[in-house]
C-alpha cells in the first residue's frame, strides 16, 4: 500500500492506483471529460490536472500513478483558472445548441460549463463545421459536438476489438472518423454512444423521443442470448425509448448491437403476442393452454407410433443455460431420446 495525502486527507491506496482514483476513494471529485475507468488513461482533456508537491507543473491525475508520500492538491486558484480556460476553449469550438441536444441534462460538458459558470467566452472564434452526415442507420454522429476525448476510439479498440474509428487529420482539424471518412460500417455495438460525454454520438432510434430527465428506468435482462446481460430500459409514455446498461453489472455496462438496438419489435404491430395454430393451411389465434396441449398430444402420439428416437430436439442459443439444461432433460427423461442438439453446433 502507498501512503498519499490528497487535499490534506491522508489515505493509503494500492500500488499502481492513479491519483484520480485515489482521490475518488477519498470522495474527492476531480473534473474530467476523457477518462473512463475501464479504458487506458488518455490525458487529453487536461481538466483533471492537479498539483503535486515537488513537481513544478500541473500533471493530469488520470495518468499519474501515486507514489509514497505524495502530496496532492486537487483544487487551487491556479488549477481552477487553467480548468476554466480549457473549458472555455472546448466550448468555443462547440455548437451552443443545448436546448435541442439529445444529451442535454446528461452531458458532462454541459454540467462542467454550469459549475464553472461559463457564460461569456473570451476565445470565440472559428468552429468546426461539417456538412456531411454519416449514412449509417443506427448511430447519429454529430462531429461538431465532438470534443476529441477519444473514449469512443478507445472503447472500440480496447473493449470491442474492432477499431472502426480513429482520429484523422491534425490540430484544429482533428476529427474522429472511420477510414477515409466513409460512412460508419461496423458491428454497431453502440459502445461508443455509451461512453460519449457529449451529444456527439447518440442513437438514431431515440432521437427526439425523450431526454434522460423524461424517462423511467426499468432494470431487466437482455432476452437475446444466453449471456444474460443486465440492461436498463429507458421508458417514456410506456414506450421503450432506448436501452442502456449500468456499469456495476455482470456485463460491466457493455452491450452488443442486439442488446442496444434490437428492441423495436416490442412495439411493432406485426409482433406475435399469442400462439398461432395452423388449421387447414391457415393460422388462427389460440391460447397457450391449447397450443402446448396440442404439441404434447402430437409428441406422445408420435412417440407411441414410431418410438422415442423418431423425435429430435434442437435448442436455441438465445436460451439461457438453465433453459437449455431443462430442454435436454425433457428430451432425455420425458421423450426418452438422446436426439438433442443446439443451433450453435450447426
Amino acid at each position: 500500500m502507498i501512503n498519499v495525502t490528497i487535499d490534506g486527507i491522508k489515505t493509503s491506496v494500492h500500488r499502481d492506483t492513479s491519483v484520480l482514483d485515489a482521490a475518488k476513494q477519498c470522495d474527492i471529485t476531480i473534473p474530467t471529460l476523457c477518462h473512463h475507468p475501464k479504458l487506458t488513461p488518455y490525458g487529453g482533456c487536461r481538466l483533471c490536472i492537479v498539483e503535486i508537491k515537488g513537481i513544478n507543473r500541473p500533471v493530469t491525475a488520470c495518468t499519474t500513478p501515486v507514489s509514497e508520500g505524495m502530496e496532492v492538491t486537487t483544487s487551487s486558484p491556479v488549477l481552477e483558472k487553467l480548468r476554466r480556460t480549457t473549458l472555455e476553449l472546448i466550448l468555443s469550438d462547440h455548437p451552443n445548441d443545448c436546448m435541442v441536444c439529445e444529451k442535454a441534462g446528461d452531458c458532462t460538458l454541459q454540467e462542467l460549463a454550469y459549475f464553472y459558470g461559463i457564460k461569456e467566452n473570451r476565445f470565440a472564434g472559428e468552429r468546426r463545421v461539417y456538412e456531411k452526415r454519416d449514412g449509417n442507420p443506427l448511430i447519429e454522429r454529430d462531429m461538431e459536438k465532438c470534443i476529441l476525448c477519444n473514449k469512443c476510439v478507445r472503447v472500440c479498440d480496447e473493449v470491442q476489438g474492432v477499431s472502426a474509428i480513429d482520429i484523422a487529420y491534425r490540430g484544429f482539424r482533428s476529427k474522429v472518423c472511420p477510414p477515409y471518412e466513409r460512412d460508419l460500417d461496423c458491428e454497431f455495438c453502440g459502445q461508443c454512444i455509451r461512453v460519449c460525454p457529449t451529444g456527439a454520438l447518440t442513437g438514431r432510434m431515440w432521437s427526439l423521443k425523450g431526454r434522460q430527465k423524461d424517462i423511467r428506468e426499468v432494470d431487466t435482462i437482455c432476452p437475446y442470448c444466453g449471456c444474460g446481460c443486465n440492461i436498463t430500459l429507458d421508458i417514456r409514455k410506456n414506450e421503450i425509448v432506448r436501452v442502456t446498461s449500468k456499469e456495476d453489472t455482470i456485463n460491466e455496462g457493455w452491450l452488443c448491437s442486439k442488446g442496444t438496438f434490437g428492441y423495436k419489435f416490442l412495439n411493432d404491430p406485426a409482433r406475435l403476442t399469442k400462439p398461432l395454430i395452423k388449421y387447414k393451411g391457415k393460422f388462427r389465434e389460440s391460447t397457450w393452454e391449447e397450443a402446448l396441449g396440442l404439441v404434447a398430444k402430437k409428441l406422445l402420439k408420435t412417440k407411441e407410433k414410431h418410438g422415442p428416437d423418431s423425435i429430435a430436439g434442437l435448442a436455441s442459443a438465445r436460451c439461457t443455460s438453465e433453459e437449455n439444461y431443462l430442454f435436454q432433460k425433457f428430451m432425455r427423461a420425458v421423450i426418452k431420446t438422446n436426439n438433442v442438439d443446439h443451433c450453435a453446433r450447426l
Binding site: 490525458g43 487529453g44 487536461r46 480549457t86 472546448i90 472559428e126 476529441l148 490540430g171 484544429f172
Partner: peptide, 15 residues
C-alpha cells in the same frame, strides 16, 4: 502540427 490530442494545444493555439 498539433496532434489534436489535448485541448489547450489543439484549440488554444488556434485561438
Amino acid at each position: 502540427e498539433s496532434c489534436g490530442k489535448c485541448v489547450p494545444c489543439r484549440i488554444g493555439t488556434k485561438r
